[in-house]
Simulated scan of single mutants.
Amino acid sequence: MLHSKRQFLKGCGALLAGASVYGITQSPLAEHSDTSSEADIKYAMVHDENACIGCNACVEACREVNQVPEGVTRVKIERRGPFGEYPNQSYRFSRVSCQHCEAAPCVRVCPTGAAYIDKDTGIVAVHEERCVGCQYCIAACPYQVRFINPETRTADKCDFCQQTQLKQGLQPACVLACPTKALTFGNLKDADSALVHLLKSKPTYRAKVDLGTRPKLFHIQTIDGEIML
């Protein structure tokens, strides 16, 4: 396996150095990437920045459940601030993780089909056995959330706990661990789901929608003064 990866990377070195990754056509091996399918499930997540306290319980739960090595992470909480004057200061917390784009650049550039969109759930995932570590997907991701797992030497990122929690009929680890219920996970195609009700009741935003990626990670923006420390 290591030998085949070495051969692949050697043959692709010139291509990576001389061409934009956005210009690489999708591999014929890239399966489950047709987002026009009539599946009944399209998973998404909402992060309520007003409820988030930046405790990182979500980060640690993800690490434990998905066996993410130290030094890398599938999700992180960015803290900004303080805003305002003491003692009336506030902080803002934002989730940074895979956006599970419906038009995912990482899938488009993957030469082996390792990066794919699961046609049954809409989850952007990775076939670890197909990944050769070329890092095209990392370069193509406009959200900079992919990384090379130092133990498997393959591309890694948040997959909504597809291979762990979801297989057991459970919510993602980060959702269950959040002490303030800042995360809501569910099916966009289920009109009765808590996710859809939340999206209909509160204004949200998504990152870099101008790129046409159609991300499925939604944010409820911080109201100034809501989080006081």
Score class of each variant (00 low, 15 high):
Arg92Glu: 15
Glu102Thr: 13
Phe93Asp: 09
Val124Pro: 01
Ala104His: 01
Pro105Gln: 05
Tyr136Asp: 08
Arg80Asp: 13
Cys98Arg: 03
Tyr91Phe: 14
Asn66Ala: 07
Cys62Met: 08
Gln89Ala: 11
Asp118Gly: 07
Pro82Gln: 03
Ala140Glu: 04
Arg95Met: 15
Gly133Gln: 06
His100Gln: 11
Ala104Pro: 12
Val124Cys: 09
Gln135Cys: 14
Tyr86His: 14
Thr112Val: 04
Pro82Asn: 04
Ala103Pro: 00
Asp120Val: 05
Phe83Ala: 06
Thr73Arg: 15
Glu70Trp: 10
Cys106Pro: 02
Gly71Leu: 04
Ser97Cys: 14
Cys62Glu: 04
Val126Phe: 06
Ala103Glu: 09
Val68Leu: 03
Cys137Met: 06
Phe93Ala: 07
Val65Pro: 00
Ser97Gly: 09
Val124Trp: 02
Ala140Phe: 03
Ala140Cys: 11
Val126Tyr: 03
Val109Asp: 05
Pro105Met: 07
Ile117Asp: 00
Ala139Phe: 03
Lys76Asp: 12
Pro142His: 04
Val132Ser: 02
Gly84Tyr: 02
Phe93Thr: 10
Ala140Pro: 04
Lys119Tyr: 05
Val96Gly: 01
Tyr136Ile: 09
Gly71Phe: 02
His127Val: 14
Thr73Leu: 09
Lys76Met: 13
Asp118Val: 08
Gly113Glu: 07
Pro69Gln: 08
Ile138Val: 15
Gly122His: 08
Cys141Ser: 08
Lys76His: 15
Val72Tyr: 01
Val107Trp: 00
Asp120Phe: 12
Asp120His: 13
Val109His: 02
Arg74Asp: 07
Glu129Phe: 12
Arg108Leu: 07
Ile138Thr: 09
Arg63Pro: 01
Val107Ala: 00
Glu64His: 10
Val96Trp: 12
Val126Thr: 14
Ala103Gly: 03
Tyr136Gly: 05
Gln89Arg: 15
Asn88Ala: 11
Ser94Thr: 13
Pro105Ile: 11
His100Phe: 03
Arg130Ala: 13
Val75Asn: 09
Glu102Lys: 11
Ile77Asp: 00
Val75Ile: 13
Val68Phe: 01
Phe83Cys: 09
Arg92Ala: 15
Cys141Tyr: 02
Pro142Val: 03
Pro105Glu: 05
Asn88Thr: 11
Glu85Gln: 13
Val107Arg: 00
Glu78Ala: 15
Val107Ser: 00
Ala104Glu: 01
Ala115Asp: 10
Asn88Leu: 12
Thr73Glu: 13
Arg108Ser: 09
Gln99Tyr: 06
His100Arg: 03
Cys131Leu: 06
Ala114Arg: 07
Val65Arg: 10
His127Gly: 06
Val132Arg: 09
Pro87Tyr: 04
Ile123Leu: 08
Arg92Gly: 12
Gln135Trp: 10
Arg74Glu: 07
Arg79Ile: 11
Val109Thr: 15
Val65Asn: 04
Ile117Met: 15
Ala104Leu: 04
Cys110Arg: 01
Cys98Tyr: 00
Cys141Met: 05
Cys110Glu: 02
Phe83Gly: 11
Pro105Val: 10
Pro105Arg: 05
Ser90Phe: 14
Val65Asp: 10
Ile138Glu: 09
Gln89Tyr: 05
Cys131His: 06
Asp120Tyr: 13
Gly84Cys: 08
Thr73His: 14
Val75Asp: 01
Pro142Gln: 06
Cys98Val: 02
Gln89His: 06
Ser90His: 12
Ala139Asp: 13
Cys141Pro: 08
Val107His: 00
Pro69Cys: 09
Val68Glu: 00
Ile117Ala: 06
Glu102His: 08
